[in-house]
Design a binder for these strands. Sequence first.
DNA 1: CTGAAAGCGCTTACAG
DNA 2: CTGAAAGCGCTTACAG
Lengths: 340, 340
Amino acid sequence: MPDGKVATINDIARLAGVSKKTVSRIINHSPLVRPDTRDKVELLMRELGYVPDPMARGLAFRRSFLIGMVYDNPTAQFIVNMQYGALDALRDSGFELVVHPCDSRSPGYIDGVRRFVQQQKLHGVMLVPRVSEDQALADMLQEIGCRYTRIAAVALDEPSRMVITHDRDGAAEAADYLQTLGHRDIALITGPASYRSAIERTGGFIDALSRRGIELPKARIVEAGYTFESGVAAAEKLLGGKRRPSAIFCGNDEMAAGVYRVALRDGISIPRELSVIGYDDSPLASRLWPPLTSVRRDTRDTGRIAAAMLIQSAEGAASRPAASVRPHLVIRDSCQPPAS
Amino acid sequence: MPDGKVATINDIARLAGVSKKTVSRIINHSPLVRPDTRDKVELLMRELGYVPDPMARGLAFRRSFLIGMVYDNPTAQFIVNMQYGALDALRDSGFELVVHPCDSRSPGYIDGVRRFVQQQKLHGVMLVPRVSEDQALADMLQEIGCRYTRIAAVALDEPSRMVITHDRDGAAEAADYLQTLGHRDIALITGPASYRSAIERTGGFIDALSRRGIELPKARIVEAGYTFESGVAAAEKLLGGKRRPSAIFCGNDEMAAGVYRVALRDGISIPRELSVIGYDDSPLASRLWPPLTSVRRDTRDTGRIAAAMLIQSAEGAASRPAASVRPHLVIRDSCQPPAS
DNA sequence: CTGAAAGCGCTTACAG
DNA sequence: CTGAAAGCGCTTACAG
């Protein structure tokens, strides 16, 4: 284009000698265009560096080219990885990622998401734990006709909308590993029972131990808040008694760091006197000493899949099966067989 | 509005008995509206829950209501805090935040940002360290007429575009503190000299010590990469010799965690035998044991200011002085007077 | 397979 | 202080 001006659909149509409707068909990948017409126009678009204006398209479509990511308050690393993953899927798609953190305990938060979605006419939203677990949120989105994907430990919705992280399996792998090492007196620090991830990790861990003949007594299970501080408090409870467990599985790495803190302070050697496993495989896991064995979840991949589902053509999307991301145990140096 | 339909400017104009141009003037806060007309229309807008369509406005304005955040690869917590801050400023403004991580070492990254800005017709972009330090990026934005703000340790651009974090002062405060505690043999682990923040922190630390009569020998200064691993390597160099420094100041917390790792492994007690200070006051600082004394920077506030500058009315904006965010030392338990 | 007309919901430029 | 006309850059609905 001459001077700083950027090409529009009218320029392309005029220079190609076709109507703008034909150019529009090509932009939207309509099959109703003769191949040679398509080639001619596409060549011209490349030459002029033409890219359709998302606002003009959005206005006509009554829907923007924005994907929203809605989340409450997971760890920073989790959010960032999820964002990277979503951006992996959106790259060169013409879609952009708009972030929307919120406080799911505040009463007006669902209305806040509704305004966000409606005012921006979002193309779709990714629901990240734990807002992904809120059925009222999903119902609202359904009601206003906004497409969404939910990332959660189990299927909470139609398969085509789910990315399932199978936390149960990750926790079970941790249980199997501890049992294999020979641990029998094992403890568990769980996340809040209001989190589905906590329920699944807890259930998966307990069931897997049970399958291997180990029953976890109630006293060996402490509910905490997924935070470092709550991990410290839980560890004090578990390690303060006269008979200490030989291993602790924590619902996330933050709480495992709390266990480390107490162990270090009280002179309990990890892993010699106490084995510890976390969940998330966050950067923290390798900053701790000894490096923490932890269940890794591929958050970036999870985000990529959730975003990709949103921008895929709608055809057959409704019947698509749920997507899955599998956790797996990353073994480092925080576990060993119990002292005999 | 009847059924699910949402009100438009035409509905408001018709129901208020004015032209849509008058409604438009009210939306855009034009003073050229009679107060009673304004009141009448604004009441109606509230009643109908009318919000102007950002895509329609954007199309007419030839500029979207999106603010871009461009960053390379700082820590997750830094990115997330910056995002929270930006969203603080954008809340209820009608603007949304679009994130754009990139790799400043890849050759095409400036073109990538250009496409991002031009295709979305961004209203403005926030440049976060270290891409904020790249003059070629800023030049490109200037050339295409995109407004931007740069967050950096020192003024790199016109004041109206700068949020200055004064890293020099934060490092100086760390130096003063160590000197006051009585340390004389002090070491420094710096970030990469290609980062302005590293240069400023290093310079600020050295100069402040010098002002207090302590000269840092070359051997006590080790350049590292702002990463945990590089911090480990630097600490090994500094702590491996036969005369150890009594205190180490690290250019960020990640590297300080590396020092902790080496100290723990080699049986060097912090703070009894070695005092350590970090920079960032990240969550890691309080996860470490003993809790790390660190220079705090209010990243959320920084992000808030940088975003606010972008959406402020353009009037007088060009002559606005640079914004400043001040670091300060947060004292925890990782320092004490040197063993005599 | 292709196109002319109307419209998406706003603003600009002009007139009064 | 207010408004009618034209336009931003696309798509939809209809016609052929």
